[in-house]
Design a protein around this nucleic acid. Structure first.
Length: 148
DNA sequence: GTTCTTACA
DNA sequence: TGTAAGAA
């Protein structure tokens, strides 16, 4: 009832990453708990919905093969905007990350061969909302999958 | 006593 | 990446 954010175990479950991965990203400064930051052992971090979206984008970018440094740069740019407007598509060619605000820009990036993978931020947010809603339900069932 | 962060291997 | 310890 008094939870304004998502705790690390909750966040890691929603974005589908390991606890070690989330902890590593947080310690390296890739992501920052907007709600509450840990102040040492015993304290817990609280991630906001925006942070979950950022985590989801990071995971998707890493899955496409983007370097962690490029991901960090893209995330730093994404953190500047509070709420990305509809129609924003994140393009990636596996090496760099490009931001397209218009469908025309997406096509332009595709023509140049700089956009092999397209990530729609709107889709990320929509998927995140469903994930959060499903995670809040006690009937939620998750399947454990072996990762790297 | 439980849960989460931090440190070490 | 996994385990152990320390702290609220």
């Amino acid at each position: 009832m008094s939870e304004q954010g998502f705790r690390a175990p909750e966040a890691k479950r929603i974005v589908g990453i390991s606890y070690r991965q989330l902890d590593y990203w947080t310690r390296t400064g890739l992501v920052t708990p907007s709600v509450k930051d840990a102040h040492g052992s015993g304290t817990q971090r609280l991630y906001s919905f925006q942070d979950l979206a950022t985590l989801n984008v990071i995971k998707k970018l890493l899955d496409t093969g983007v370097s962690l440094q490029r991901v960090r740069k893209a995330v730093d740019h994404l953190r500047t905007m509070d709420r990305p407007p509809h129609g924003v598509t994140l393009m990636s060619d596996g090496a760099g990350v490009y931001e397209a605000h218009s469908p025309e820009a997406v096509v332009d990036l595709l023509k140049n061969g700089q956009g092999v993978f397209a990530i729609s931020l709107d889709a990320v947010y929509s998927d995140l909302e469903e994930s959060v809603a499903s995670a809040s339900k006690p009937r939620a069932r998750r399947a454990a999958a072996g990762g790297s």
